Simulated scan of single mutants.
Amino acid sequence: MSTASTVTTGRTGYGSRPGAGAAELDLPHVPRPAEVAPRDARELSRLFFARLALLEEGTREHSYVRNTLIELNLALVRYAATRFRHRADQMDDIVQVGTIGLIKAIDRFELSREVEFATFAVPYVTGEIKRFFRDTSWAVHVPRRLQELRLDLAKATDELSQRLDRAPTTAQLAHHLGLDEEEIVEGIVAGNGYTAGSIDLPADDTSDGPPALADRLGGPDAALETVEDVESLKPLLAALSDRERRILRMRFGDEMTQAEIGAELGVSQMQVSRLLTRITARLRTGLLAAG
């Protein structure tokens, strides 16, 4: 190879050091591995893989060879990332995740496989990128089984829609995929969690269009708690004596003062106060016990 004998020493971006012993390992120093042409990178990679297999993991020499291999083959990550260029806003993350796939491929590759490293590595790189999208693209986390079912449903729906010239039914989707209808329904419901939008967004872009979803959503009815309290009080009130129910009616229904109640019953205001305290305490205890 023309460049192998002319490259000089240098530090790689992954931490390999000129002093790591490239000369001692009988390997060429590569000052900027990521800038090596693809053809030269393939030939250099064979040399470095052959040496890597003989080195003990964790040593300085092993790190140098492994890190150089990573940089030599970063072009594979960039190549795989072009398949996802429609997600340009995530390209930095895609390259980073794809590099993890490249590292896994390097750690598992063996020259004895008699296959080009690029052929071996690209599926690792793309697989890691797809796994990244699968795990982070969903607005709501759902099991992996349902994530994959959503893709199968989308494909089956397209095929059946073209064949039937209409949207397929749940039963037809189940028959096409060989699944139960319950699983199809579960997959459709789970698919709703792929994307999410704010309830404060307007329904459309027109100023006179329908209000935002938040404006049409109902809220808790405060009267419901009153209904529950009334229903809980009914048996407790039924257990009171006629005189006690009459006192409560005069005080809270007719809104009479304690003095007026005392005059009606022929007792003092103090007695009325004690009676009300005892009755309401009994009702309160009953409500707490019921709750």
Rank of each mutant, 00 (worst) to 15 (best):
A88D: 14
E225Y: 09
L47P: 04
G197F: 05
G58R: 02
D205G: 15
L52V: 05
S112T: 14
D107K: 07
G10Q: 06
S45V: 06
P168L: 02
A50M: 13
P202E: 07
L72E: 03
T119W: 02
I94N: 11
A118V: 03
L217G: 01
E61S: 13
E181D: 15
I70K: 09
S273E: 14
S137T: 09
T68H: 08
D204M: 11
L27N: 05
G262V: 00
E231V: 09
E159Q: 13
Q147A: 06
V36Q: 04
T59S: 15
L74N: 01
F252Q: 11
F120Y: 15
T136R: 14
T6F: 07
M91I: 10
I279A: 05
V142M: 09
D152T: 04
I106V: 15
A20H: 10
F132V: 01
L224E: 15
G15D: 11
A81I: 05
A156C: 10
G21T: 12
V142R: 05
G187E: 04
D40K: 04
R245L: 12
D229A: 13
L173A: 08
R134L: 11
T119M: 08
V7H: 11
E114V: 06
M270G: 07
A75R: 08
A118K: 12
A121P: 06
R85M: 14
N67V: 07
I279P: 00
L54W: 02
D180Q: 15
R251D: 04
L276T: 02
T82R: 15
A80G: 13
R66M: 11
E110W: 03
P202W: 03
F84M: 11
S16R: 11
D92P: 05
A196Y: 03
A105C: 12
D205C: 00
L276Q: 00
R278E: 07
R249G: 05
L52K: 13
G178E: 11
G209D: 09
A259C: 02
D158W: 05
T136K: 05
E182K: 12
A118I: 01
D92E: 14
E181M: 11
Y124I: 01
A171P: 04
R131E: 13
T3V: 12
A75I: 07
Q269I: 00
A23W: 01
G178I: 02
P202M: 03
E24G: 15
V30S: 04
Q172S: 14
R246G: 09
E128V: 07
D254P: 00
A4C: 02
